[in-house]
Amino acid sequence: MQPSHLAGIVNLDHPGHYIHFHWLLISYGNAIVIALMMATFVAALFLPFPGARRKGHHHE
């Protein structure tokens, strides 16, 4: 298989690496995406939101 002609700065057009553990077989690409997703979720829960402590005002 010839890779495409417009490569990215980081070349991902090579056979992937895989995490293999019993029945679990996942590409680093997908594993990174899923791990990032979970990390982002946890970060969104814990990181302070700017202006969160700002005093609210009443609105009719």
């Binding site: 298989m1 890779p3 991902l12 057009d13 090579h14 056979p15 992937g16 690496h17 077989l25 996942i26 590409s27 680093y28 690409g29 997908n30 990174i32 995406v33 899923i34």
Partner: peptide, 15 residues
């Protein structure tokens, strides 16, 4: 090989 969610090369696929 969990093929449906994989992608050619080292790209993430349909995770």
């Amino acid at each position: 090989q969990w093929g449906m969610m994989n992608e050619t090369g080292s790209y993430p696929g349909q995770a």
